Amino acid sequence: MKLVAQVKLLPTPEQAAALAATLSLCNAAANEVSVVAFAQGVFARQKLQKLVYADLKARGLSAQPALHVIRKVADAYTTLHAQIEAGLLGGEHSPRRRKAESKPIGFRVDAAQPFDDRCLSWQMDARTISIWTTQGRGPGRRLHR
């Protein structure tokens, strides 16, 4: 059974800056991975991982966030290709479809980045969470219900 809880982070200004820098780096990396995927026509996670994983690690991403970036890009292309195949972007000569097919998928600087239990940990008694950032795992971020 999964338990779902909505929480609100109450980071210090330094913690907020670290989280923002982490989102920015992850999404910039996703944009670069998207360019590689588009240019080489490689959209499968494993093949894409072989192409870009070392570069992501060199940029400062830890292993799990690097894999999440690759997965995010691969999933975005899977969704795009499914939309095209289903005809949701119009026919073969539709301007909307041609626009979608003519350039790499882009990610906003502040777009969501998935985290899992390898990137964060919960301290329920202390009501804090430790989150991986580009500046390392910071001290616990205070939670609010």
Rank of each mutant, 00 (worst) to 15 (best):
residue 1 M to G: 12
residue 2 K to T: 14
residue 3 L to V: 08
residue 3 L to G: 10
residue 6 Q to L: 05
residue 6 Q to E: 11
residue 7 V to W: 09
residue 9 L to H: 02
residue 10 L to K: 14
residue 11 P to W: 08
residue 12 T to Q: 10
residue 13 P to N: 03
residue 14 E to T: 05
residue 14 E to N: 01
residue 16 A to S: 06
residue 16 A to F: 00
residue 17 A to H: 08
residue 18 A to F: 01
residue 19 L to R: 06
residue 21 A to Q: 10
residue 21 A to G: 12
residue 24 S to C: 04
residue 24 S to F: 04
residue 25 L to P: 12
residue 26 C to E: 00
residue 27 N to H: 03
residue 28 A to P: 09
residue 30 A to K: 04
residue 30 A to N: 08
residue 33 V to D: 07
residue 35 V to W: 02
residue 36 V to Y: 01
residue 36 V to E: 12
residue 37 A to Q: 10
residue 37 A to H: 12
residue 38 F to P: 02
residue 38 F to D: 00
residue 39 A to R: 15
residue 40 Q to F: 14
residue 42 V to P: 15
residue 44 A to I: 00
residue 45 R to L: 08
residue 45 R to M: 04
residue 46 Q to N: 13
residue 47 K to V: 08
residue 48 L to M: 05
residue 48 L to E: 03
residue 48 L to V: 07
residue 50 K to Q: 04
residue 50 K to F: 08
residue 52 V to A: 07
residue 52 V to M: 11
residue 53 Y to D: 06
residue 56 L to Y: 00
residue 59 R to L: 12
residue 59 R to A: 02
residue 59 R to S: 03
residue 60 G to R: 06
residue 60 G to D: 06
residue 60 G to E: 07
residue 61 L to M: 10
residue 62 S to K: 10
residue 64 Q to A: 06
residue 64 Q to H: 09
residue 65 P to W: 04
residue 66 A to P: 10
residue 66 A to T: 09
residue 69 V to L: 05
residue 70 I to G: 09
residue 74 A to I: 09
residue 74 A to N: 11
residue 74 A to D: 02
residue 75 D to L: 10
residue 76 A to Y: 11
residue 77 Y to N: 01
residue 77 Y to T: 01
residue 77 Y to K: 02
residue 78 T to I: 02
residue 79 T to Q: 14
residue 80 L to V: 03
residue 80 L to H: 08
residue 82 A to M: 11
residue 83 Q to I: 04
residue 84 I to F: 02
residue 85 E to P: 00
residue 88 L to P: 07
residue 89 L to Q: 00
residue 90 G to Y: 09
residue 90 G to T: 04
residue 91 G to F: 08
residue 91 G to A: 09
residue 94 S to A: 14
residue 95 P to V: 15
residue 95 P to L: 15
residue 99 K to E: 15
residue 100 A to C: 11
residue 100 A to Q: 10
residue 102 S to C: 01
residue 103 K to S: 14
residue 104 P to K: 03
residue 105 I to A: 07
residue 105 I to R: 11
residue 106 G to C: 13
residue 107 F to C: 09
residue 107 F to A: 05
residue 108 R to E: 12
residue 108 R to C: 06
residue 110 D to S: 14
residue 110 D to Q: 13
residue 111 A to D: 13
residue 111 A to I: 02
residue 111 A to E: 09
residue 115 F to I: 04
residue 116 D to P: 03
residue 116 D to R: 08
residue 118 R to A: 14
residue 118 R to L: 07
residue 119 C to S: 00
residue 120 L to A: 15
residue 123 Q to E: 10
residue 125 D to E: 12
residue 126 A to H: 01
residue 127 R to A: 14
residue 127 R to H: 06
residue 128 T to F: 11
residue 128 T to I: 13
residue 132 W to A: 07
residue 135 Q to V: 06
residue 135 Q to S: 14
residue 135 Q to L: 12
residue 136 G to F: 04
residue 136 G to Y: 01
residue 137 R to Q: 12
residue 139 P to A: 14
residue 139 P to C: 05
residue 140 G to S: 06
residue 140 G to V: 01
residue 140 G to R: 08
residue 141 R to K: 12
residue 143 L to E: 02
residue 143 L to G: 03
residue 143 L to R: 03
residue 144 H to G: 11
residue 145 R to K: 03
residue 145 R to H: 12
residue 145 R to D: 00
